[in-house]
């Protein structure tokens, strides 16, 4: 939940899946789900490598 992550002070926040499966999407077939998950992870890696001055939400 990006609002909670923001409220508690996380600095690098990636908007991902749902509460019970932040890096999953059971509505997709396994192949597409993995593709989506890779994209979320790539954005997460980019977030780790990004220089930021304040709390930032990274969109996937």
């Amino acid at each position: 939940m990006t609002s909670v992550a923001t409220a508690v002070g996380a600095n690098r926040i990636v908007r991902a899946g749902r509460i019970p499966h932040p890096t999953g999407d059971p509505t997709q077939d396994p192949e597409h789900e993995l593709e989506w998950r890779k994209r979320v992870m790539q954005v997460s890696l980019d977030a780790l490598a990004a220089r930021i001055e304040k709390q930032t939400i990274f969109e996937t």
Partner: peptide, 8 residues
């Protein structure tokens, strides 16, 4: 609700 968007 399960996502930020759904909650909002």
């Amino acid at each position: 609700n399960y996502t930020q968007a759904e909650k909002q």
